[in-house]
Design a protein around this nucleic acid. Structure first.
Lengths: 343, 343
DNA sequence: CGCCGGTGTGAGAGCGCTCTCTTGACGAGG
DNA sequence: CCTCGTCAAGAGAGCGCTCTCACACCGGCG
């Protein structure tokens, strides 16, 4: 009848509730025989601790919030995010911590989410997809809630984060284009208020400079991290510099857009123009030709995010922790890789 | 100092804790002036009810579990799922119910998930991506936990579900191919243990029969809902029936695979072979040419799932509820739509 | 033989909330 | 004037758990 309580377990094992609790929580000061009889009672009754009662007294929730504040919808078009969630889920699950997903799309929802998060219902928060000067991390921190950001945090924010090596990945991509003998290398950039986009652009410039190529603003155009933006940026670039022979797009989605423009303009890829994207998302395999791209392991990112967050929670310190994950350039046909680029 | 409690609110407002509780929960038996002074105290102190304490006594959790049991990874390659989550999140958020995400990929994780869910930590469960004879829904129900399945449930299971009109969508797709004058229409099917795949296949057959076309098993090949499977299935089909001029793939991912085979085989799409997919996922726009597909609003599905689940929770009955959502055929270039298929 | 520290177990308070039961106030009816 | 019904507000128990403190027991030492 109903869910068994600790009390019932204790009675069945012939001990006090306190001792039963000790067994459940793995206290070392319990006699071996007593422990066993309690464990037997637990198994027999199918006892599961009541989280609510527990967190009422421990003031811990054993749950962390994962926030996707994305009114613009970028992240939704991008399957990479599910992988991060998977990594987070796996890491939390093995620690018996639950994952509370919070997606806010309107200002109204964001307000509600914030009230929820600051209401002490989670032990920590993982934040995604922050734009420019989002005050959310600072706000949560001021309430004493541990926070870690996935991706580069807003500039100047004193907050822990786990990020992919956007810089290294972008440099590798551009250097690869240079190595292919391309000399007119353009870039399609992300929005200016997203740190990842800015970092990739700066890395593009740096890689060119390192190769002794002069910086040409005409070779840079924004694509807003959308397919349509990539398509349009490529048109603009082609109009300004018809002899472009290499393109580094700061996301696969934009690269896919660029590809369709190039196709429409009669440019062959990679013969006339080599293209490299970023993210190595599922898209990279379905473009024609398959897209070279910078791969980042999103599942690893998820695990790292959890690891950093739990450190912060356990340590109870306001330390800022940073983790940068390596990236890898995957060369496919769009930049001269072998014709059959199977997964 | 710390999070304010109801007690403190009551003291600040000069009332008893019971009355403060009444105000918080919107009881009508509170005088207007008392109510206002309590509300003022709440606002001033920034009071947020403690969920743990509340659910300890109400025996409600105000949270529902969303389970993705997907060892095979199909769902992860598919961005459609984030949209469903968005719909679920929005619907739950407006009701102050939290979304606990449970992703189990190994048997071990699944066991843990099941223990968690049956431990009374959630008021209800939304299940996804079930295979053939998954016992999870029945098992949860036997513990008295309301369950609703996203997509078609295992055959024979007595469980509520919300599904897209796979049948209607597939029929529309095949009929469209017929209307285009195609006579050798093949299909690439999903796995046999996934109801959605089976339904789409049956609908394909029915649509052909309705058009007076004889059923030819040589025109059917499984693609396992993966890109590689689609690629391979198309090779097999082409080997068996070289004069295929239409293909209905039961998912966009498989359609994308089929497209690359057709491309490699020198078939023009749509001139030689018209192709239609299913899901209208983000992929459909990035293939060359853009893919005709059957659209289903995943966000609506999410909202409906929540609506059905909350009904079941509130009603406390074991009624089986079914909702089928309409689909829409989106015609793009791959089956003869206009050349520039913008979003 | 008494005292000590260590070790295993029990008793009981209390976390913040809801909800039933009781009390108090007030106006209407006898 | 007293009684009764009605309605707003308070008192208090108790949800299932953790954790501090008290206690009993035991071996070793002076």
């Amino acid at each position: 009848m109903g869910v068994p309580t600790l009390e019932e377990v204790a009675r069945a094992a012939g001990v006090s509730r306190a001792t039963a609790s000790r067994v459940v929580n793995g206290s070392p000061t319990v006699g071996i025989d007593v422990r066993q009889s309690v464990e037997r009672a637990i198994a027999q009754l199918g006892y599961v601790p009541n989280r609510a009662a527990r967190s009422l007294v421990t003031r811990r929730n054993d749950s962390v919030g994962v926030v996707i504040a994305e009114p613009t919808g970028r992240i939704f078009g991008d399957p990479f995010f599910l992988e991060v969630l998977r990594g987070i889920s796996a890491a939390l699950g093995s620690r018996q911590i639950q994952l509370v997903l919070v997606m806010s799309q309107s200002l109204d929802e964001e307000r509600r989410a914030e009230r929820y998060l600051t209401g002490g219902h989670v032990d920590g928060v993982i934040l995604f997809s922050l734009h420019g000067d989002d005050p959310l991390p600072a706000h949560l921190q001021s309430h004493g809630i541990p926070v870690v950001v996935g991706g580069e945090p807003p500039r100047g924010a004193r907050v822990s984060y786990v990020d992919n090596d956007n810089h290294g990945g972008a440099v590798a991509a551009v250097r690869h284009l240079i190595d292919q003998g391309r000399t007119q290398i353009a870039t399609i950039t992300g929005p200016w208020d997203m740190p990842a986009g800015v970092t990739r652009l700066l890395a593009y410039r740096e890689a060119l400079r390192a190769a002794g190529v002069a910086h040409d603003p005409d070779l840079e155009e924004g694509g807003g991290f959308t397919r349509e933006g990539g398509r349009h940026a490529m048109e603009v670039l082609l109009g300004r510099c018809p002899d472009i022979d290499g393109v580094f797009a700061a996301s696969d989605l934009m690269a896919a857009g660029a590809l369709s423009t190039l196709h429409a303009a009669g440019r062959r890829v990679p013969e006339d123009v080599a293209v490299v994207g970023f993210d190595d998302s599922i898209l990279a395999l379905s473009t024609q030709p398959p897209l070279s791209s910078v791969r980042q392991s999103m599942e690893v990112m998820g695990r790292e995010l959890v690891s950093v967050l739990l450190q912060a929670i356990d340590a109870r310190d306001p330390l800022v922790r940073r983790v940068v994950l390596g990236t890898e350039l995957i060369v496919r046909q769009s930049s001269g890789g072998p014709p059959t680029g199977k997964s």
